[in-house]
Design a protein around this nucleic acid. Structure first.
Length: 259
DNA sequence: ATGGTAGAGCATCTA
């Protein structure tokens, strides 16, 4: 099974790129973030024509997450399954695909360390932990995929100095991510390339950062033991960041062996 | 000292 996470930064603006990439890469399960669509505008029929069932959780203008699957798509949960009041933003969707409990997450950016949105980011990550207990069965392989807006370590940043006093690499964010790993998840891409630097999934559109190699690895696939043990290979498709009107994120791809 | 770009949507907000 081939599993992907990709922040497409507007599915409407990216449709042709996404369609072309799906046909070429042939993934089985795809987690999308930042569709920036309402559920009524989500192109489920177009994905169906490409062979994918889909589930989308969107609000319109911003955010929006989806899961595509050609190996089944069941038991969908939109948002958090913790019984608390609904998240005001559409940032999480969960489904079972091909025997794997899959989550597509778009973790809040945080904006700045003194911003309310940063506190929302930390609270959101705490809630994701509770959601794991509520919506995932530990006896099943689990894949928490998405744009975490956190570079796990300085190894995942071109210029760690640029993150001092900023979001994406602060202690509390990295601690929150560590709690997810402590729950029993593995960063399966880093597991495949433990010593490599310069492996990024996002590059700022500004200043030609992609071509300068200045980016961060913030798009992650966190797998439970039953998933992480099945990883045959992993890659980040930087070619998807080149050419006409690309997303600022590249897709992260993981190939799993059959159980 | 703060920009630079891209997307949504039409003034800015978000990233």
């Amino acid at each position: 099974m081939r599993l992907v996470t990709w922040n497409v930064n507007s599915l409407k603006a990216r449709w042709e790129r996404v369609e072309e990439w799906l046909v070429t890469c042939e993934p089985d399960v795809v987690c999308l973030q930042e569709t920036k669509l309402a559920d009524t505008a989500f192109p489920a029929m177009d994905f169906s024509a490409l062979g994918y069932e889909s589930a989308h959780h969107g609000e319109g203008r911003w955010n929006g997450v989806a899961i595509l699957s050609r190996v089944g798509l069941d038991d969908v949960v939109s948002g958090f399954g913790d019984g608390e009041p609904a998240d005001p933003e559409a940032r999480l969707i969960t489904a079972t695909c091909g025997g794997v409990r899959v989550m597509s997450a778009y973790v809040p950016n945080g904006r700045a360390l003194d911003n309310d949105h940063y506190r929302y980011k930390l609270a959101w990550l705490e809630r994701l932990l509770a959601h794991l207990d509520a919506a995932a069965d530990r006896s099943m392989p689990i894949a928490v995929c998405g744009d975490f807006n956190i570079a796990p370590t300085d190894q995942d940043v071109a210029d760690p100095q640029s993150l001092v006093g900023a979001t994406h690499g602060s202690g509390p964010e990295r601690d929150a991510l560590a709690k997810l790993l402590d729950w029993g998840l593995t960063d399966v891409f880093r597991d495949a390339y433990p010593n490599d630097e310069g492996l990024f999934s996002w590059w700022d559109y500004r200043s030609g950062n992609f071509h300068k190699g200045i980016g961060m690895r913030i798009d992650l696939i966190l797998g439970s033991p039953g998933l992480a043990d099945r990883v045959r290979w992993a890659l980040i498709d930087r070619n998807a960041r080149r050419g006409t009107r690309p997303s600022d994120h590249a897709p992260v791809v993981v190939e799993l062996v059959d159980p």
